[in-house]
Design a protein around this nucleic acid. Structure first.
Lengths: 221, 221
DNA sequence: GCGTGTCAATACGCCAGCGTATGGAAAAGA
DNA sequence: TCTTTTCCATACGCTGGCGTATTGACACGC
């Protein structure tokens, strides 16, 4: 229940986790470069004398924040989607997940574009790969071949990532969750990102399609 | 032709554009925060005494870099895609464009996640909106209704942005341009991102699809 | 040749953030 | 009570980057 440690005449005592959480918040609001000891200390109402008791240096704080982030992104988020047993429901859940937690998506994109501490890229790569692999498995559970599942998953993951970016860079263009346009767009994406029964049966790895194939059926109705 | 100004005993004389270009390069490699006067001066082989002759301060350098970036992203890139007259060819061109210019995509994502100089967001928003509008127009040229064109364009733009991010965060997972898997994936995306003739004819704005519609035809062959 | 304009080097003060050293106050044992 | 541990404050030196002031070197018009 996260009992806050109170002592020193009822003043809040900070833990290393508090610092890591504040660092994650700083990443979302100011980017990785914005994880500075003294500003965060001011936000926490203490001085850096506190920080250097919990951590040896700034880099250790970044590592702690990244570990927290990785654990959350894999355990919490994926678990929430994984509770859906139906692979189709998983994909739908993934899409609607775009509109939740603006803060989490800001952290994700801040870490993705970070370059300076080189180890940041490792965390981003692991988290991204886990997400992609999970989507691949979801499509494979629909009966697709490995190659086809990978193609569908790459597209769906791209839509997921791109949607996050659009919602941040062009918030006006993104349908609001309470408007009907959002539900319509989700339905639209579901049709586009979900292979038909025929796809699952006809599992040719390299479809020999003509240059501009005309599909029958699809979005029009 | 970019004739370099040579004087002062054959030493290269820098112009404001040289500084702006170096700043853009720095954005791609180190992020917006990495646009520092003295480091860039070192890279250019001069001192900051040169810089403060061409610009009043660091902010002016950022503005110059952003103006250059906006002009390039709209004029050059869009023009290259716009030369394709067929709307279908435009979309295909957009997809293959993902694999070109790793540097440009790094600049784009660095600017997208930047927060500190607030005016950066304005440039990102304008460039993003122009790109999206262009894709919307391309789909509208296929005969789709405004609502449907917007839906298709949002999905295609998402795929484009997300693909850029995947290629950066998970380069191993992204098919290499010279492998056959890449051409196969492009064909796959073309089928998925291109409405059928029936879609263009059957232009209902809010398709009343069942929860899990089974499409006939599509990717399997 | 001689001023004037152009571009750059040097030197300086300033500030923010990092890391260290030291001290101190409250809690916890003994 | 008295020591030890825990957590934080303060003061200090250091570095990197910003912006200014001053000087200097070359080119060019006249």
């Amino acid at each position: 229940m996260m009992q806050r440690r109170m002592t020193k005449s009822q003043k809040v005592m900070l833990s290393a986790n508090d610092w890591a959480e504040a660092a994650l918040d700083a990443i979302g609001r100011r980017g990785v470069e914005g994880v500075a000891v003294e500003p965060i200390a001011r936000e926490l109402g203490v001085t850096k004398g506190s920080f250097y008791w919990h951590f040896p240096n700034r880099e250790a704080l970044l590592v702690a924040a990244l570990q927290r982030w990785e654990a959350r992104e894999t355990d919490e988020v994926l678990d929430r989607v994984q509770q859906e047993t139906d692979p189709r429901a998983r994909v739908k859940r993934l899409i609607t997940e775009v509109n939740t937690s603006k803060k989490a998506s800001r952290i994700y994109s801040a870490l993705s574009s970070a370059t300076k501490p080189a180890f940041v890229r490792d965390y981003v790569e692991r988290v991204s790969k886990r997400r992609l692999d999970f989507i691949i498995d979801s499509y494979a559970a629909l009966g697709l071949s490995a190659d086809n599942a990978r193609r569908w998953a790459l597209m769906t993951f791209s839509v997921f990532l791109g949607s996050l970016q659009i919602r941040r860079d062009l918030p006006e263009e993104w349908p609001n969750a309470d408007e009907p346009a959002f539900a319509e767009y989700v339905r639209f994406l579901m049709v586009s990102l979900m292979p038909s029964e025929l796809d699952a049966a006809n599992n040719t790895p390299a479809p020999d399609v003509p240059e501009w194939p005309a599909r029958s059926g699809g979005h029009g109705f």
